[in-house]
Amino acid sequence: MTTKPLPMRDVLLDRIWQAMGQDAKIFFVSADFGSPILDKIRADFPSRFVNVGIAEQNLINVSAGLALEGFTVFAYAIAPFITMRCYEQIRVSLALLSEVRPINVNLIGVGAGYSYVVSGPTHQCYEDLTLMRAMPNFQVFSPADHVTAGALFERCVSATGPKYLRFDAQVLPVIYEQTAPDLRLGFHVHRRGERVCLLATGYMLHTALRVAAQQGSEHDVGVIDLVDIARFDEDRLADELAGYQGLVSLEEGFSGRGGVDAMLFDFLARRKLPLTLLNLGVNGGYRFELGTRAELHEQVGIGPEAVQRRVAAFIQSLSH
């Protein structure tokens, strides 16, 4: 039986809606951003839902204040706005404050990478992983399908501290038919390979799986889904990478600007792992061209064809 793919946000919001009936501490705050499931929350829990309007700075501040009064807060907006419009509010009243107060605020950002395809760079989001992982106490989750997105609910309510959930705006194929990835591990191994491993997050996992399948048995590459960008199990990932010569990072964010690639450069250096890293992310600057997500990805070097070419060349370079 195959699972019907659903929007990440609706799956998590449905979990929240179900929980709000039993848990009077859950509060939902939106910056004038909706979803069909959010309509159920608005209708059924009007005293614990509030729309702050198009005002992300206030979204964060009000969420911090509610959390100080003991509520478990979900704050909800479009990804570039909930991260960048209000970054200092996040830093001061979530990251700094949570060092001395047990507050629980969960930021749900919808619109990872190019997922708002035709909306252009204002609504696309290629800097958020860099920015959110820059705060050392932030938890950052980047799911690749709706099953993973829904599984994040327990983590959100059970752990205090600030969290950022980076959701795709498109409906992505289901990866985890049977069971969600182990969030304590923070990553999931999809296939083991010989010389090169692709480590991808979010939408890019789908590209990685496709590219790995196309490499054929001659160059068997591994694939790992990185869900928890900030607090994955380092020992277990180091074990998993032992034996590979090369690691390829795949992210829907600018390459070489502090995102997952920087995290992995740091990880390899600290753990003294003898792997060469090829960091694949968005090349170049901001662009205004229209196209499908696949076309946009090819233009900036992260489409399946571009990744296929670059991975093949990487494998070649390692064998000399």
């Binding site: 509060f27 509030v50 700075q57 206030n58 964060i60 501040n61 009000v62 969420s63 911090a64 204040g65 509610l66 959390a67 100080l68 009064e69 003991g70 509520f71 509010q89 009243s93």
Partner: peptide, 11 residues
């Protein structure tokens, strides 16, 4: 003021 507003709503 913004954080206090959230506290006031919570109370």
């Amino acid at each position: 003021l913004g954080v206090a507003t959230g506290m006031a709503l919570g109370l």
